[in-house]
Amino acid sequence: MATVFIPALLQGLTGGRSKLEVAGATVGEVVENLDRAWPGIADRLVEDGRLRTNISVAVDGEVSPMGLLEPVAAGSEVHFVAAISGG
C-alpha cells in the first residue's frame, strides 16, 4: 500500500480525507484503484491516458519523469503537484 496525499481541492471527492492508503505497483494503478474507491478522482488527474496539464506526480519527494508509469513501492508517498519548469 502506498500513501496518497489528496490535494486540498480534490478532498471534496474523498469525503474530506487528505491521506489514503492505496494499492498499486505504478502511479497509474494507484490512480485506478483510487478512482474505484472514490469515483471521479481519475478524471481530475488523468486525461487521454496521461497526467493532466500542469500536474506532475512526486513519489517519495521526487518528481517523476515517467508520470503514470512511475513505479510505486509499498510505503511510498505519492503526491500530485503542480508541474514546474524554470527560466
Partner: peptide
Amino acid sequence: KELGQKTDRVSNVAEHFRHV
C-alpha cells in the same frame, strides 16, 4: 479550473489551486 476541474465560472482566473 480548480485542479483539473473546470468550473462554470466565466472569468479571467484561469486556475485556482490550494495547498493545505
